[in-house]
Design a protein around this nucleic acid. Structure first.
Length: 257
DNA sequence: ATGGTTGTATAACAA
């Protein structure tokens, strides 16, 4: 079982990169964030022609999440199913091949102290609660997506330089820790405790990839029953270096499942 | 240096 996450920064703009990556890597499950498209405008055909099923939770212009899978998704849930976060499409979950898969696009936070920052903190608190209200740590569960937090100094190009800013702030660390206390393990860090690899490089920074100005903010987390099944986890740097890339790249975990 | 890039409600906004 090969499961991957990718912030596409517009699924329609990224179709060439997405389709070639799928053809080259043949994932069983691919979770996409920032699809930036309403469900009835999602480019379904190219995925379905390749034998994939789709579970979509999109909106116009911003946000949007999707699950692409070989096995059909069951019990698809979009959003938090309450009135706290009614408008933006940032979370979709499904049961696929006996796994519960939760795909999230965590709010960016914009700038520390802004309204969007407050929303990010509330969102993380709400997600910590969702895990506990709907799931147990003994079930085979994968939480993956654009987490928008680089949790440790090794997860960002220069921790001292960016500590206290959006994406590398103690208030985020506390909330992510609380989420993970549910019983989740970071797949990449579990297998590569000292690897300084990144999944996102800012478009605005010239030659950010070549200069190593990156962040590891796209994560795959596993509950305990799946940690023992984890055989590999890698970040596809090469895919970020192609023509018209997203600002993120693919993170892939392989499970004996 | 408060710039720079990319995408979408193509005009400002978000990231």
């Amino acid at each position: 079982m090969k499961i991957a996450t990718y912030n596409a920064a517009s699924v329609r703009a990224r179709m060439p990169r997405l389709l070639e990556w799928i053809d080259e890597n043949e994932p069983d499950i691919l979770c996409i964030q920032e699809t930036k498209v309403e469900d009835d405008k999602f480019p379904r055909d190219e995925f379905e022609q390749r034998g994939y099923h789709l579970a979509l939770h999109g909106q116009k212009a911003w946000n949007g999440v999707a699950i692409v899978s070989v096995e059909p998704p069951e019990d698809v849930v979009s959003g938090f199913m309450d009135d706290l976060f009614p408008t933006d499409a940032r979370i979709i979950s499904a049961s696929i091949a006996g796994l519960r898969v939760i795909n999230t696009y965590v709010p960016n936070g914009n700038s520390v102290g802004s309204d969007k920052w407050t929303y990010k903190m509330r969102w993380l608190d709400r997600f910590a609660h969702l895990l506990r209200e709907r799931h147990t740590p003994d079930e085979p569960l994968v939480w993956l997506g654009d987490i928008n937090i680089a949790p440790k100094p090794i997860d960002v190009f220069d921790s001292a330089k960016v500590l206290g800013g959006v994406g590398h702030h103690p208030d985020e660390f506390v909330r992510l820790d609380r989420i993970l206390e549910f019983g989740l393990t970071d797949a990449f860090r579990h297998l590569h405790p000292d690897a300084k690899e990144f999944s996102y490089w800012d478009f605005v920074q010239p030659r950010a990839v070549a200069r190593g100005i990156g962040w590891r903010i796209d994560h795959i987390y596993l509950t305990e029953p799946l940690v023992g099944c984890l055989s590999s986890c890698r970040i596809d740097l090469e895919a970020r270096q192609r023509e018209k890339p997203s600002d993120h790249t693919f993170v892939i975990a392989e499970l004996d499942w």
